[in-house]
Design a protein around this nucleic acid. Sequence first.
DNA 1: GAGGATTTGTGCTTTTTTGCACAAATGTGT
DNA 2: ACACATTTGTGCAAAAAAGCACAAATCCTC
Lengths: 229, 229
Amino acid sequence: MPSKASSSIKDGHTHKISEATVSRLPAYYRALSQLADAQQIRISSEELAALTGVSSAMLRKDLSHLGSYGTRGVGYEVEFLRYQISREMGLNQDWSVVIVGVGNLGRALAHYGGFGSRGFRVVALVDADQTLIGTKVKCGAEGKTVELLVHALSDLEDVIKETNARLGVVATPAESAQVVSDRLVKAGIRSILNFAPVHLSVPEGVDVRKVDLASELQILAFHEQRKAI
Amino acid sequence: MPSKASSSIKDGHTHKISEATVSRLPAYYRALSQLADAQQIRISSEELAALTGVSSAMLRKDLSHLGSYGTRGVGYEVEFLRYQISREMGLNQDWSVVIVGVGNLGRALAHYGGFGSRGFRVVALVDADQTLIGTKVKCGAEGKTVELLVHALSDLEDVIKETNARLGVVATPAESAQVVSDRLVKAGIRSILNFAPVHLSVPEGVDVRKVDLASELQILAFHEQRKAI
DNA sequence: GAGGATTTGTGCTTTTTTGCACAAATGTGT
DNA sequence: ACACATTTGTGCAAAAAAGCACAAATCCTC
């Protein structure tokens, strides 16, 4: 044991992980989970890179920011690496999610199985529509479906306090999104996933990620148009 | 009319627009559309930047890649700029979209109003589930709803030919996504929006944009975890 | 236990993206 | 007609991201 003695030091990776790397970690995590399900023990950066659509060099550099978890000449241990990523990303704990807006999209999100399987639990549904409030909506995919009551938007603060939700999903029409966002922030939510096609302005310290379906199609259309030359 | 005579020359902007710029154009377009609806005639880069969440310098540089459409000391004309962006992005034509996978998400997408209002028309629905094939699903938001028949996955190629769809949306489970993608490509589709949580490998010349809901939440969770320090 | 075959981790280079700051261009008021 | 207040467009600098290439570490075989 020549130099590996103080491994506890190198584990304490506090240096910043770049945003680009963070955005790719989920893909690595997902691929590793599938490999683990398929009982694969080890994988090389080359293979994992192919599975996730990045270059092997980029993959290795990304992973190196978490720590030195591979073995030269061998590769990475699937289960071990998966665990390290999940730990780094905070996926070994459960995250409670409140969805505001129970229209088509909100319901589809509530029903989406991909959440529950990765530590995300939809704990509350909120809407402004009087005809929806009080109704029950199925949450989660097969296996672990729960029926959730749709709460009134006016109860938002209480619902968040009671359920201890830390992530907010905005799936309302564009007109109401900013108001809803403001109230989420006021209720203590500091991480918001926004599906409404508007830019949300939030105070410093609050993160917003936006998913805009129409924008994605527009970007595709732009490139498609250029191909036709 | 002093120097504006030969404007047809400067319009021929063939130099490459950076990917980062392209990804922001939809947001500008949307904001400008809202401003136009609100009858606003002019807007400065500072204001438009605030509406879309970018810096004014970045906005100006982005727009400068399309052409010189602003007036110094004044700003941009809302309607004119909106038109220029839509032309550049190919939004003054209609784009036909085929959605494969008519589960919760697929249905929510079909129903989504944001598409139709921006030149995207869902022209076909396809699924592998025998219990869904032949059923009718409402497409589009209020005002212009159409009922579309769900076609069998085995008819995919025919459906694409008949409807002339150029954009494909994959809203299937992860297991079937790659197979569906291959068939879309074989049928001539070269632009795919993928909602399935897997990386799609496609031949060169085909564009894939992916929207992964769980990944977005994971990225938020990562940052949220760091805040708790 | 030495040599060869792998595969990681990373220093360095190149490319892309963002940010700054100011000259150029326009409108306004006198 | 001239000075002044705006606001765009852009050259240049800084920062971030991606790509290359190879030394270092490990395993395997003889």
